[in-house]
């Protein structure tokens, strides 16, 4: 077990460093650098050189990457090129809004994934095909289209909910169902359909196992067969699928927050890309990467721990 945890941690750390290189390279490749964007293109070559030296842009890229990483480890992410405020502060302001939205979306997506997967996996052969086609179809529809549909139906046609979710002034409670419902559903439903498509097959395989058939033959009540003989074998695949679903959902917050004008981290990321505010882009991207990698590391550990086939869960000898 210690080995599994160690392996998961090492893998996550290696991937995190790789992601940091990727993020750094991607922001390096943006057409203009920080010195140019600060001076707004009005400075001469000499002035730019001076500013670059001042900002530390004249040292080689790998040195800057290392010092950036070192700064991250100390909890410093530089200052915004646009507002000159510390990046950590900007991110901290936006974090609660995104956490609330992602939390609400997960609260819907996780039960929905499990429910749909169960329905697909245990459906009679005649219904399984059509049902899984519908689930995959919902997963395949682009998320923006799905969100647009929700807005049209609930905000425009029915007028029940606001079409945009502008957050109230600072201090007001973040948890407002009226503002959260549409963005959370837009995040949750496609993610749940995607996860259910993956998990449904595992459910179908499990219910065909001989000990499940035997439990049915012994006349155990349905709920007991489900809880005791099917569910434990689904823990490992379910944890893996849910981790995937969660990371897909985190990635999708950027689009959904933009659509609904919801001032969270995703919106910050997209608008910072627009203003070429590289320190902010790097910080938000790394934060998202940490969340996703932590999720998959947890899933790996839990998966190994709950996987009966690998002898994970064992009674003490």
């Amino acid at each position: 077990m210690t080995r599994v945890v160690g392996m998961a941690l090492v893998r996550a750390l290696v991937l995190l460093v790789a992601v940091s290189v990727l993020v750094f390279c991607a922001t390096e490749l943006l057409p203009s650098d920080a010195a140019q964007s600060r001076t707004g293109g009005r400075a001469g070559a000499e002035q730019l050189e001076r500013l670059r030296a001042e900002l530390g842009l004249d040292v080689p890229a790998w040195q800057r990457h290392l010092s950036w990483l070192a700064g991250l480890c100390r909890g410093e992410a530089g200052t915004s090129l646009v507002t000159d405020r510390p990046v950590v502060q900007i991110v901290a302001e936006r974090l609660p809004a995104t956490l609330t939205l992602a939390g609400c979306a997960l609260a819907v997506a996780v039960p929905l994934t499990l429910l749909l997967a169960w329905l697909v996996g245990t459906a009679a052969p005649r219904w399984r095909g059509p049902l899984s086609t519908v689930v995959t179809g919902v997963a395949a529809v682009p998320q923006v289209v799905f969100a647009t549909g929700l807005i049209v139906v609930f905000a425009v046609v029915l007028g029940w909910l606001p079409p945009v979710s502008l957050l109230p002034a600072a201090g007001a409670p973040l948890f407002d169902l009226e503002l959260l419902t549409l963005p959370a559903l837009s995040l949750a439903v496609p993610a749940a359909a995607f996860g259910a498509g993956l998990l449904g097959g595992a459910v179908a395989d499990t219910v065909r196992r001989p000990h499940v058939r035997d439990a049915v033959a012994r006349g155990l009540p349905r709920h007991r067969v489900a809880l005791r003989h099917v569910a434990p074998f689904l823990l490992a695949p379910a944890v893996r699928v849910l981790a995937l679903t969660a990371s897909a959902l985190v990635a999708a917050t950027a689009v959904i927050e933009m659509m609904f004008g919801y001032a969270g981290l995703g919106e910050l990321l997209v608008s910072s890309i627009g203003t070429r505010d590289t320190p902010v882009v790097q910080a938000v991207a790394m934060l998202a990467a940490v969340v996703v990698l932590a999720g998959s590391a947890v899933a790996d550990v839990l998966g190994a721990w709950t996987d009966p086939e690998r002898g994970g869960v064992r009674a003490p000898a």
Binding site: P142, Q143, V144, A252, A254, V255, M258, M259, V270
Partner: peptide
Amino acid sequence: AAAFGMLGL
């Protein structure tokens, strides 16, 4: 690609 278009990218 659709999401990128939606974001103005």
